[in-house]
Structure formats: C-alpha cells, structure tokens
Computed example of a mutant assay.
Amino acid sequence: MDPKNTFFSCDWGTSSFRLLLVERHTLTVLAQVSSREGNAAIDKSWQQAKQPPAQRLDFYLGVLQPHLQKLEVIMKMSLKGVPIVISGMASSTIGMAELPYKPLPFATDGTNLQTKYLPPTARFEQPILLISGVKSEDDVMRGEETQLVGCALENTPQLQLFLHPGTHTKHVQVQHGRAVSLTTYMTGEVFSLLSKESILAASVEEGGQLEEGNNQQWFAKGIQDSQQANLLHNAFLVRTQDLFRKATRQENYFYLSGLVIGSECQDLVRNLPARIVLAGKPVLVAHYSAALHVLGIADKVPVEVKNGEDVTIKGQWAVFQGSQMEKEDA
C-alpha cells in the first residue's frame, strides 16, 4: 500500500478521540485507534502544565503523536507526511487552535467551511487541515457540519433536515445546497441529568436493548405521552411508575428516553421537512428512527439513515479535496 493514497481522519471531540487511517479512493478504514483523551481532558492538563500560550499547539500535537506511531506499528510502515484532517472540538477554545465559526449559510459540499492549514515541521511531520464549526445568530456546532457535508444531500429547493442525535442534538435545515438554519436540543444532556442526578435515578436502570422485552413498548409510550402533556409532569411519572410497580426500572429507562426524544420532536411534528437524513451513533440513530415511526413522521416523509463514522470520513475528505492543502499535497 502506498501511503500517498491515504489520509488520517481525526474526530476529536470534547470527551473522546478517534484517529483512522483511510484509503483515499474507496474511503476504506485501514486501521484505527481511539481513546478518552478528549479536548476537555487535554485542556485541563494544559492548564495544569502552566505552559506559555504559544506552546499550546505543540502540547496537543504531543498527545496526537503517540496515536500516529501506534498506527505505523499496526500498518508496519512509515506514514510520514500523510495529511491529517481534524474536525470536532479541536478548533474550539478548549482545542489545539481556536478558529472562528463559519456563519450560516454554508455550502453542503464543504467548499466554504472555515479551515486552517497547519504545515509540517521538523518536530511534527504531518500536515494538518483543521475544520472549524458553524454558527447562527444564537446557536453553534462543531463536528456536525462535517458530517452534514458527508451526507451529500441533494441540491433541491425542497427543505431537507439533517438530524444528528447526541448530547446536544442538532437539527439543520438544508435548502438549495446550503445549510440555512440550526437548532440545538439538549436532549442527551437532559436525559443524563434526569437519569443519573435527579430523584428519578433510583427509578431507572440502564442496560438492555430497545428491542428486548417490553422496552420498545415503554419507549413508544414515552414518545406518545410526550405529545400529550408537559415534560416536567411526565418525568415524575417515572418515579410513580416505579413506586406503584407499573414498570420495571429498565422499562422506565426507555420510557424516560422516549419522553425526552419525543419532546424534542414536537417542533418537527409541527413543521415537517420534505426529507430527513438521520446520522450519528448506531444506538442513538435506532432510537430516533423508532421515534420518527411512532410519531408517524416516517410515514409522511422519507427518512434516510446514515452511520456517523462513515459521513465524518466522507465529509472530511470532501473538505480536504476542496482545500488549498489538497493542491499542495497532490
């Protein structure tokens, strides 16, 4: 294998790090490493090290370097000079180099996203393309914009929705080949707080799959109840269902999941797009796909499901191809 036919795909989030060696023509993953060395943890270590601000980038590259070496060991070859494309929180205030957000709208082919080229040096021999996030007047995202590019949505006058579930779920409206609006829902974070930190923590039990036992029925009930009453009332039912032995704690877990996802989707029910592209981690995508079916949304508009890792790679490669860095690399 010729290293010149590869690139590194780096998804560097707040709490996790993933680096993949990817074959350019087929976008096949050849090898990968991951860790919990997210930007939040590295930033904390940086603050504790009390180094000059000018050394911040080198500090982060020092974290990245051992992972590159691991991939060289796995591949049994030198990967010197192979470019790295990084998206996620690495371009934020807690990352290696802060980049300004790209204001909406932006082209969904990735040609006008905000990027920064970091040339190779004697100490770090890989060139880097750092991709920044996107902002509206009152919202932001970092990382999801690259996944949206990787979805290759059609250039059409019809309004399409890119839905990325997560800690802070993103709904991005796309029209005429441009992302035109962005809405964030703190669905994952609210679910985590309710299920782990609130009085409801004693009434739920994590574990099991959506399709096991009665989990799917209780999840669907949570979705349906979310459309009928306020979340702040519905959430307390999780406690009383446990007290009155109406549901097991695992069933309650899925009921609560249905409540928060269903509450998020209220806006979607009222304003249906022409098409929905759902992309993210498989477990979350499965939950949202089920919710869209329970709400009848999937019966009214087409829903396309994509794997988050796949669209990240495709998006990074598309941005790289449209960048000045690609011309220098050719």
Rank of each mutant, 00 (worst) to 15 (best):
Q241H: 15
D242V: 05
D242F: 09
D242E: 09
L243F: 06
L243D: 08
F244Q: 10
F244V: 04
R245H: 08
R245L: 05
R245E: 10
A247Q: 12
A247F: 02
R249D: 03
R249M: 04
Q250A: 09
Q250E: 10
E251S: 10
E251H: 11
N252I: 10
N252D: 12
N252R: 07
F254A: 06
F254N: 09
Y255W: 09
Y255Q: 12
L256K: 02
S257H: 02
G258T: 05
G258V: 07
G258W: 05
L259A: 03
I261L: 04
G262R: 02
S263I: 03
D267V: 00
L268V: 05
L268R: 02
R270G: 00
P273Q: 01
A274Q: 08
R275E: 10
R275L: 04
I276N: 02
V277K: 08
L278E: 07
A279W: 13
G280E: 11
K281W: 07
K281E: 15
K281R: 15
K281V: 11
P282A: 11
P282Q: 08
P282G: 05
V283G: 04
L284S: 08
V285L: 06
H287S: 01
Y288D: 03
Y288A: 01
S289W: 00
S289N: 12
A290S: 14
A290G: 07
L292M: 15
L292Q: 12
V294T: 14
V294S: 07
L295K: 13
G296Q: 09
I297S: 07
I297M: 07
A298Q: 12
A298D: 13
A298W: 06
A298V: 08
K300N: 15
V301W: 13
P302L: 07
P302G: 13
V303A: 06
E304W: 08
E304D: 14
K306P: 05
K306I: 00
N307V: 00
E309G: 00
E309P: 05
E309A: 06
D310L: 06
D310E: 12
K314A: 10
G315W: 01
G315Q: 03
Q316G: 04
W317K: 07
W317Y: 14
A318F: 00
V319D: 01
F320G: 03
S323I: 09
S323G: 12
S323H: 11
Q324D: 15
Q324L: 14
M325K: 13
M325F: 12
M325S: 10
M325V: 14
M325D: 08
K327A: 10
